[in-house]
Simulated assay, not measured.
Amino acid sequence: MEDKSYVTLFIDDDVQPLGTFPAPVSFDLDTKKLADGPHVLKVVSKDHRGKEGIKTIPFIVRNGPAIAIEGIKKDEVVDGVLPLMINAYGKGDQKTFMLHGSETPQSIPAWFIILLIAFTAWAAYYLITSGAITLFK
Rank of each mutant, 00 (worst) to 15 (best):
M1F: 05
E2P: 14
E2H: 13
E2V: 10
K4Y: 11
S5V: 06
S5W: 04
Y6G: 02
V7M: 00
D13C: 05
D14T: 01
D14L: 09
V15K: 14
Q16I: 03
Q16C: 08
L18I: 06
L18C: 11
G19Y: 09
F21V: 00
P22M: 04
P22A: 11
A23H: 00
A23K: 05
V25H: 06
V25N: 05
F27Q: 01
L29M: 04
L29Y: 08
D30L: 05
D30T: 01
T31R: 06
K32S: 15
K32R: 15
L34C: 05
A35L: 14
A35K: 15
G37W: 02
G37Q: 04
G37V: 02
H39N: 00
V40D: 04
V40K: 06
K42D: 02
K42Q: 11
K46G: 02
D47M: 02
D47Y: 07
D47S: 00
H48G: 13
H48Q: 07
R49I: 10
G50T: 03
K51M: 03
K51V: 00
K51F: 04
E52G: 10
G53Y: 05
I54V: 15
I54K: 15
I54P: 07
T56E: 15
T56G: 07
I57D: 09
I57H: 10
I57L: 13
I60F: 12
I60T: 15
I60H: 15
R62K: 05
N63S: 13
N63Q: 04
G64D: 06
G64R: 00
P65I: 08
I67D: 05
I67T: 11
A68D: 10
I69E: 06
I69A: 03
I69T: 01
I69N: 04
E70S: 09
G71H: 01
I72K: 06
I72V: 08
I72A: 06
K74E: 09
D75M: 05
E76Y: 05
E76N: 07
V78Q: 03
D79M: 09
V81P: 02
L82A: 03
I86E: 01
I86Q: 05
I86F: 09
N87P: 01
N87Y: 03
A88K: 06
G90V: 06
G90C: 06
K91Y: 13
K95A: 11
K95S: 11
K95E: 14
F97Y: 13
L99Y: 08
S102M: 02
S102N: 08
S107G: 15
S107K: 11
S107P: 13
A110D: 13
W111S: 14
I113M: 10
I114F: 11
L115I: 15
L116K: 14
I117L: 14
F119P: 07
F119S: 15
W122D: 03
A123F: 13
A124V: 13
A124N: 12
A124F: 12
A124I: 14
Y125S: 12
Y126F: 14
L127F: 12
I128R: 12
I128M: 12
I128K: 07
I133F: 10
I133M: 15
I133Q: 11
T134Y: 15
L135P: 06
L135R: 00
F136S: 01
K137A: 02
